[in-house]
Amino acid sequence: MGRYVLRRLGASVLMLVLVSVLIFVVLRLLPGDPTIARVGAAQNIDPSALAALRRELGLDDPIPVQYWAWVTGIFGGDLGRSYFSQFDVEVLIGQRLVPTLELSVAGLLLAVLFAVVLAVLPTVIRGRWLGRIVGGYTTLGMASPPFVFGIVLIAIFTVQLDLLPNEGYVAPSEDLAANLRTLLMPALTLGICLSAPLIRYLRASLAEVEQSQHVRTATGKGIRRRLVVVRHVLPNAMLPALTSLGITVGAVLSGAVVVEYVFRWPGLGSLIVDSVYKRDYAVIQSTVLLLAAVFVLVNLFVDLLYGVLDPRLRVGGRAEPARVPE
């Protein structure tokens, strides 16, 4: 187990290094210049002034030198400074982190709730119509991008019914009721999109566990179908479905970017989009690296959790991830 943990830690560190290099290099290969974006529509800009601005921002240094300065600054607690607002990047991230965490947690909780209910119901209540409805929901959720559900919810609950606001954010410390009203539609949008792949994994896992010997024995003893599913099928099906949790976290982070922009939610996603328009390299690279680190750490935690939840997965003193049934 110890060797497995060290191997996974090493792989996670290597992944973060590769992500940081990729982010840094790709940003500088994209068309556009932060200095041009900073001066905006100003006319007759002196080329020497632009060159001086590039030197001030450190953009005239070789890319390896810029990368090394950025990485060493991260280990020193300095993520750099925004090219436009001149605020420290860690300050900008700190201002947007709480709304993003709130939206991500709410969306993930709704996704897990939807997934468990919609995956278990067709197993408890056998009926083709229910299975087809859940299958259609899964297909629609996986095929449609988050902004489509966001626009539909806005059209229904804001335009037609005038029940919920379609934009803005209120901190829970200021007004909890207003916070929940502004949170509901973005969280529901994110939850619907995230629940679809979770339902797919969980239904496949439920179908495989349902064919096992101990489940058939429990059914043969005359135990009610609902009790068999809840006590025997669902607990054993949750572990293979746990594989999709790490993937879901990545979907949370990527989906939050789109959802925040649709609902004008002041989180890290909207910060990234605004920074892309401005070519604010310092903000983009640090924010994306933070999101990548969260994704890598959650996947590491899920992998290590296998050996704790199911000792059968420890083979030869190490834990091996369970295979998700297709």
Rank of each mutant, 00 (worst) to 15 (best):
K221I: 06
V315F: 01
Q285H: 03
L53C: 02
L206K: 05
P145K: 05
L6S: 10
G80E: 02
G168W: 04
R314G: 07
R7H: 12
L300W: 09
P321L: 10
T248S: 11
I272K: 01
Y137H: 06
L291K: 02
L113Q: 01
S195A: 08
E90Y: 14
L53N: 04
V124T: 08
P240W: 03
I45K: 07
A218P: 07
W129P: 00
Y261T: 15
I23C: 07
G255W: 01
L22C: 12
L234K: 08
L180C: 07
V324E: 14
T35Q: 04
R28M: 09
I272C: 06
V105F: 06
L79I: 13
V148Y: 03
R7I: 14
G136Q: 06
Q213T: 12
S173F: 12
V298Q: 06
I154H: 03
K278L: 15
A256F: 00
E90C: 08
V105W: 03
T100C: 00
N166H: 11
I247F: 13
R312M: 10
A11T: 13
D175R: 12
T243A: 15
V308D: 07
G267C: 03
P311R: 04
Y137M: 15
A155K: 03
Q160W: 11
G135R: 01
R181C: 06
K278H: 00
L268I: 06
L300N: 11
L113C: 09
V288Q: 07
Y277L: 15
E260G: 02
T287D: 05
G40R: 05
I23G: 04
T243C: 14
N44P: 09
G73A: 01
G250I: 01
L253I: 11
P197N: 04
D78T: 08
A69Y: 14
L234C: 08
G267E: 02
P122F: 03
S270A: 12
I284F: 01
D162A: 13
L140W: 02
N166G: 15
L18K: 09
G136E: 10
L239G: 07
V249C: 04
T123K: 14
V5W: 10
G246K: 03
L300Y: 10
L297H: 10
E102G: 04
E326M: 12
R312F: 10
P47E: 10
V124M: 11
I45E: 04
R279G: 06
A11Q: 14
G220Y: 05
L113R: 05
N299R: 09
V159E: 06
R132Y: 12
L180H: 06
L234Y: 00
I133Q: 00
V120Y: 00
R314A: 13
V134F: 01
G191Q: 02
I199C: 15
P172K: 02
L153N: 08
R323C: 02
R96Q: 03
Q86W: 02
L140M: 15
L268Q: 05
R264M: 11
A42N: 05
P146A: 07
L92T: 08
D162E: 13
A155W: 09
